[in-house]
């Protein structure tokens, strides 16, 4: 609570003084609502919903271009990746995406989108400039999580029913290795230096830490929340702080976000958020973490310094993905 009062005060002061460097300038969060076919736009300073935008059917994965001019939206049921002009909130055009795009990752070249096509067991690579498909790579059943290594060399895709991380070489667009993980891998996240990959297994209830060089599992994180049956602890979204201190892991129907020491892999705390917590995004210089809560239809706001949930914001039906624009 105090934090916002302080923020409001600072904002007020700033608007009065007009001349200070804008260290607490508000950012804007975009939340995709899977079942209401909309995006909810949230001001991360006031933590109020400022707009709701209609998009294609069943929007799930969302991602910004590096300059934040465009927002790419996986409109799964529309079988398209939509490109939204962030300045006007209007859909400019669709990219060819393959069937049922669910998640994707943008290469550091700001040009190639790697899209997981959940229904057809392929990863589609789309050139966002020429708007053409430049490759399709056969992967396991129900491809889902996507990540590109910070150096742009690797793309990892997870397949939910094959239970693997598929390693794709971006220079050849060939699948070169697979790492078997626990049941139903959902999400992969590279560490900032790219040396490690964090991979969540939803039904397995674990997060695997995989070494990028050996492509073998280094460590497996397990979770235990008093009063929550272990079958309900289903890790999905993962976010790592840039300072290398914390990993935050959304635990789905367990309705908690786990706070993990990113060095020792020890679980430090469990934060109670909304129901079926799915994806995560940092805001305001990593001082806030936003979570999408599908079943309760809202977004929880976590104060990263205090490790406390400070607010819940109503979104659309089944909020799925969240990204933040500075």
């Amino acid at each position: 609570m105090n934090l916002f009062n302080v923020n409001r005060f600072v904002k007020l002061t700033m608007s009065t003084l007009l001349a200070l460097p804008l260290t607490v300038l508000a950012e804007t969060a975009y939340v995709s609502n899977e079942k209401s076919d909309t995006l909810t736009i949230i001001d991360t300073d006031s933590l109020e919903v400022t707009n709701t935008v209609d998009v294609g059917m069943r929007p799930r994965g969302i991602i910004f271009s590096q300059d934040y001019k465009y927002l790419y939206i996986c409109a799964s049921e529309s079988d398209a990746v939509q490109v939204m002009d962030v300045a006007t909130n209007r859909i400019l055009h669709n990219l060819p995406s393959g069937e049922d795009p669910e998640q994707f990752a943008l290469h550091p070249n700001n040009r190639h989108l790697y899209i997981a096509n959940e229904d057809s067991a392929v990863v589609t690579v789309v050139d966002t400039e020429s708007r053409t498909v430049i490759a399709q790579i056969d992967v396991g059943i129900e491809p889902e999580g996507m990540a590109v290594s910070p150096d742009g060399k690797w793309v990892i895709n997870t397949s939910e029913t094959t239970n693997m991380l598929h390693w794709i070489d971006t220079s050849t667009h060939e699948l070169v290795d697979n790492t078997l993980v626990d049941q139903r891998p959902r999400h992969v996240e590279f560490s900032k230096d790219g040396s490690l990959v964090w991979a969540s297994a939803e039904i397995g209830g674990t997060v695997a830490i995989v070494d990028t060089t050996t492509r073998q599992i280094n460590h497996t994180i397990r979770f235990k929340i008093p009063g929550v049956h272990r079958d309900k602890i289903q890790p999905v979204g993962i976010k790592l702080t840039d300072d290398g201190k914390y990993a935050f892991i959304a635990l789905g129907p367990a309705n908690h976000v786990a706070v993990v020491d990113a060095k020792t892999y020890e679980v430090l705390d469990y934060l109670l958020v909304g129901r079926r917590v799915w994806q995560l995004a940092f805001a305001d210089n990593q001082t806030k973490l936003l979570t999408t809560n599908g079943v309760s239809g809202d977004v929880s706001v976590i104060d990263v310094n205090k490790l406390k949930v400070v607010k819940t914001i109503k979104a659309g039906r089944y909020p799925w993905g969240v990204v933040v624009k500075p």
Binding site: E99, S120, A135, T172
Partner: peptide, 18 residues
């Protein structure tokens, strides 16, 4: 919707790998 040309290229890669 599958993009035949590119897919067959990828399958070749897979075949080589095996």
């Amino acid at each position: 919707m599958r993009f035949i040309a590119t897919t067959s290229k990828c399958l070749c890669g897979l075949f080589l790998l095996q």
